[in-house]
């Protein structure tokens, strides 16, 4: 786990969740800006995956390798799947779905940290 990136992912994911839930509260739909924001968080997540692969290649190991890998996969797929399910219905609830996905990312990062150190 590259701690700096992990913290960055968690913080940006929480900000994204707050933003999206605010939009949902205002009954607004997901626009390009939100998708771009989610894309930025996803880019950080992918950087985190690359960082983890490099660390493992250097010989570092997570305490529970299997759990670690599953959480890593979950953190990568959460936002794309959430965005897909979110834009499928242009409604307040549809928007909120992306917020849930962003919260899932934040929780995944916290769990990843637990299984690594």
């Amino acid at each position: 786990m590259v701690r700096v990136i992990a913290v960055a992912v968690a913080v940006t994911a929480l900000l994204l969740a707050a933003w999206v839930f605010f939009l949902a509260w205002q009954s607004r739909q997901i626009g390009r800006a939100v998708i771009a924001g989610a894309g930025a968080v996803e880019a950080l997540i992918l950087a985190q995956v690359i960082g983890a692969i490099v660390l493992v290649a250097r010989g570092e190991r997570a305490d529970e390798p299997l759990t670690f890998v599953l959480y890593l996969i979950a953190s990568v797929v959460a936002l794309p799947l959430g965005a897909w399910w979110a834009v499928g219905e242009r409604s307040r609830s549809g928007t909120a779905v992306l917020g849930v996905a962003a919260l899932v990312v934040a929780v995944m990062l916290q769990r990843l940290q637990q299984t690594w150190s």
Binding site: E64, L66, L70, W85, S91, S93, A96, V97, V100
Partner: peptide, 25 residues
């Protein structure tokens, strides 16, 4: 699966994946 149900499906799907994979591990 529409309206509030869409959100419900999303949360249930998260729990389905979380509980199943955690139990399997």
């Amino acid at each position: 699966a529409s309206g509030p149900g869409r959100l419900l499906v999303a949360v249930y799907a998260v729990f389905a994946v979380a509980a199943t994979s955690r139990a399997l591990v």
